[in-house]
Amino acid sequence: MEIGANTPAVVTGGASGLGEATARALAAKGAKVAIFDLQEEKGKAVAADIGGIFCEVNVTDDASVDAGFAKARAAHGQERILVNCAGTGSAIKTAKRDRNTGEISHYPLDAFNWLIQINLVGTFRCVAKSAAGMMTLDPLTENGDRGAIVNTASVAGEDGQIGQVAYSASKAGVIGMTLPIARDLMNEGIRINTILPGIFETPLMNAAPPQVKDALAASVPFPKRLGAPPEYAHLAMAMIENDYFNGEDVRLDGAIRMAPR
């Protein structure tokens, strides 16, 4: 799909990291971008910088997502592009034994569900609502193209580490729903693909000590460094612009395969 001047787009998690890089890449092509995020100050600053709009959105809440789409569509029109970057992570073992006391505990189910609700259900909520909106649009081409969706999973969805059970489950769910959604929407001219980032320079990663970041970078086969958000955005743009790119889950990780810890 060609990204022309004023093409309406929505990027969840667009206030920072992978989402910000994607929002900027879309705007550079002329798209009118709506940023869905909970970080109001950062989101407004990015939106102002790229000529877009900020919508304070909690992807776990139906009403919040509906309000975000309503605001974005009122400003820019029905989106033809959706990129889902909103998400979070945690590190808790399924069950563990305290080294000092010997006490045994398990992963709090509320915490497990919270992460699933953000990463998996939140992603699907935005996909379903956006796809329904895209279906109201006239096709752009003789092939019937109406829109394109890009989701964000993680290499942890395929080789999760110790303590990543909830995170891995949420991202594996995003991977697993890609092909069925592509099939659901195949007669509507709406494509969907998923990126599985490896270890990237994001705000969360930037908070880690330098020695930790250096060790992680050294574990990448090639190039031996952390991924840069614009590299994620570059792949997202290829998925959007290449009309034959559909139903795929693509690792973007420098060939890394995560060790148990």
Rank of each mutant, 00 (worst) to 15 (best):
Q117F: 10
I118D: 04
G51C: 03
V83S: 04
P180S: 12
A91K: 13
G247A: 13
M205E: 05
V11A: 05
S105T: 15
P108H: 04
V11K: 01
H76R: 08
A111V: 08
Q164W: 02
A86Q: 10
I175K: 13
M186L: 12
A131E: 02
L140I: 14
Q39N: 15
V174F: 07
L252H: 05
G254V: 14
T60D: 09
K171Q: 06
G43T: 05
G160V: 04
T141Y: 15
A15G: 15
E56M: 14
A238E: 01
Q39M: 15
T7P: 01
A21V: 04
A169V: 12
F54T: 08
R225E: 09
F222D: 09
A207E: 14
I195V: 12
F54A: 06
V83H: 04
T194F: 11
A9W: 01
P221E: 08
E56Y: 12
N6W: 09
G254S: 14
I190P: 00
N206L: 10
T12D: 13
L26P: 00
A47R: 02
N246G: 09
S130M: 06
E158N: 15
T152H: 01
D61A: 02
F69Q: 05
G163K: 08
A23H: 00
Q78D: 09
A131K: 00
R97T: 15
K96V: 13
F245L: 13
K213F: 00
S170V: 06
V59N: 05
I53C: 04
V250N: 10
Q117T: 12
V165K: 01
I195T: 06
S154E: 01
G122L: 12
I256C: 01
D145G: 02
A236S: 11
M237T: 07
G13R: 03
V57L: 07
